[in-house]
């Protein structure tokens, strides 16, 4: 793991490191060859279990192919992609996915950071507090989804009863009866479930921030707010990026909460739910494959975007910097 150094110091270290490595010796080449041999079995295995299905999906996506009607399989080129991309449902679902991702990751980042601070600073009952914060993450998403579905249920939920003093909640608010209410319920379940994960990743980053630097800032007269923004957060950038990247990709693939809570009704369907329905429910192997290829590309673009946005070298996040 990288030690806490300022970005300027870090770039100097990196440069020197690179210079030291650049003249390649016989020995380093031999090491490289050995390295390649060592990773080769893992790479072959990865190719078998990931590349093969991906290529198969790519191939299938060029066909009109329904599992219950295999004789009617027909090569149609990129028609499935054209149909999907020109369909309003695809964009609606992509929009839902992005909304869920942006809102949940933003809320989780703030709450997760607060939890990480609590876990980091707490001096009494440390184990109990840390464990209780992590409990929701230990619960299976489907179970959490069912629990929240019951909580928001019109017939036997407690949300309407407890919060009916709020102007926008009535005793007969049907949480799964319209788009935004249902989206809210889904996002609450998602946030409740995964905030601890975010907190855990941020805690790791937080514990990397040198106490000396915070101490020094304090001596220099920096306020708590300034210490947070000028010292703690910049030095946690790699950890924040990893947390945001993991959670954003995770949230982008949201499926279970929607499956349990609304089954996609009230236009709450996500991109992965749409793909699931085409392949698994409707046996449209061609269209479903096209959608999964599109989903894969979206995830790729997203990951690239986040890495670029935070301008962090991934190798640093792994502690090689």
């Amino acid at each position: 793991m990288s030690t806490a150094v300022s970005p300027d110091q870090r770039s100097t270290t990196r440069k020197t490191g690179r210079q030291a490595r650049s003249p390649s010796t016989e020995r380093s080449r031999a090491e490289n060859r050995l390295g390649l041999k060592l990773v080769a079995p893992a790479v072959v295995l990865m190719l078998l279990v990931t590349a093969y299905p991906m290529l198969q999906a790519l191939y299938l996506s060029l066909f009109r192919y329904r599992l219950t009607n295999p004789d009617d399989r027909q090569f149609i080129g990129f028609d499935n992609y054209v149909t999907a991309l020109s369909d309003q449902l695809f964009w609606q679902d992509l929009w839902n996915t992005v909304v869920i991702m942006v809102v949940t990751v933003a809320v989780e980042l703030v709450i997760g950071f607060a939890f990480a601070m609590v876990m980091h600073r707490v001096i009494f009952a440390r184990g109990v507090i840390r464990t209780s914060i992590l409990i929701p993450y230990g619960i299976i998403t489907v179970v959490s989804a069912f629990a929240w579905q019951f909580a928001f249920s019109l017939n036997n939920g407690f949300v309407n009863g407890w919060f009916s003093w709020l102007p926008w909640i009535a005793a007969d608010t049907n949480w799964f009866g319209d788009h935004w209410h249902a989206m809210f319920a889904i996002m609450v379940s998602e946030i409740w479930k995964t905030t601890p994960f975010m907190a855990l990743l941020l805690l790791a980053g937080l514990s990397q921030v040198s106490e000396d630097m915070i101490e020094a800032a304090k001596v220099d007269g920096a306020t708590w707010w300034q210490r947070l923004w000028k010292v703690i957060l910049p030095n946690m950038r790699a950890a924040i990026m990893v947390a945001v990247l993991f959670r954003a990709l995770d949230a982008f693939r949201i499926f279970d909460n929607i499956f349990v809570m609304t089954k996609g009704a009230q236009e709450t369907e996500s991109s992965s739910f749409l793909t699931y329905r085409q392949v698994i429910e409707q046996f449209q192997l061609g269209m479903g494959s096209a959608l999964s290829v599109l989903l894969f590309l979206s995830v790729l673009v997203l990951a690239y975007g986040i890495v670029k946005l935070f301008r962090v070298d991934l190798s640093q996040a792994r502690g090689e910097g």
């Binding site: 019109l154 017939n155 007969d172 049907n174 009866g177 009230q266």
Partner: peptide, 14 residues
């Protein structure tokens, strides 16, 4: 019923 849009056989009984 308030839950019309999410009603099924079971909620109808309720």
């Amino acid at each position: 019923p308030a839950d019309l849009s999410v009603s099924n056989e079971g909620t109808a009984v309720a």
